[in-house]
Amino acid sequence: MDHTSFLERWFRRVALSIIIVFFMFPIFWIVLMSFQTNETILRSPPSMSFTPTLDNYMAIIAGRLDSNVASMGIDFVNNLMNSIILSVCSVAVALVLGVPAAYAFARHKFRGSEDIAFTLLSFRFAPPLLVLLPLTLYFQEIGLADTYLGLVWVYQLICLPLILWIVRGYFEDISPDIEYAYRIAGHSWFSTFRKIALPLAGPGIAAAGLLAFIFAWNNFIFALVLASADKQPVTVGALAFVTASGIQYGQIAAAIVLSIAPTLALALWAQRYLVEGLSLGAVKG
């Protein structure tokens, strides 16, 4: 039954190991760094043997950044909260707007529907800075600069096209006959959308939501330009570790571990949906 030779299997294992090491080593090294002091990190040659310390995590949670010359306050926990607020709200808004829109684009070919869908996708083509400079001016004018509302709004540039295009593919995969059957059974189009289309596109919506969450979480430039210190997410907050007295590698590592933990957990949990979503919804021609 097994047609693969010993050599082939052995070769495959080696290849897989190389790939895993290549992609996982940086994460592994960051985790190691987060348990070390700046001295042990920076010694040459680098070594894997050290006495683990929780000082980095303590400093981040306590909000005190101690270096050998000075001590300064950082607000990393607040950054983490901002990340959660911004990402969750952005994805929620994008789902509320994007899923019905995706359904409309999938089911009702109205005049200009392709153009509108493509315009929404084109938000992802422009370099973010190009959009940001005029936006900053507008936002200051109308008082949206440095507000959660304004940031969530701008984050739609990331989340909305993603959700729209992935979920649209899912809706298109549902046989229209199934929806007709429900209509003919005496249900309105809205209850057909709720009871048939939404549950059947569920995995796709979950996958698109997760991807949008990750992209929103990892966004740097929008928050850097549009948010001040108390609204900044972790991606921008991490800049605070680059201080005049040096770069606090240990604390940066601890901060990174803390900031990737939620997305990593979410991604592992929804991994099955994610792979299915990427291969089914988005790739469909």
């Binding site: 046989s175 006959d177 007709y180 059957a181 429900y182 003919i184 309105s188 189009w189």
Partner: peptide, 17 residues
């Protein structure tokens, strides 16, 4: 609209939910 026509229909591909 189809829901008000009082029709029963069986589809070739069954179209079960």
């Amino acid at each position: 609209p189809p829901e008000y026509r009082g029709i029963g229909m069986a589809f070739q591909n069954f179209a079960l939910f």
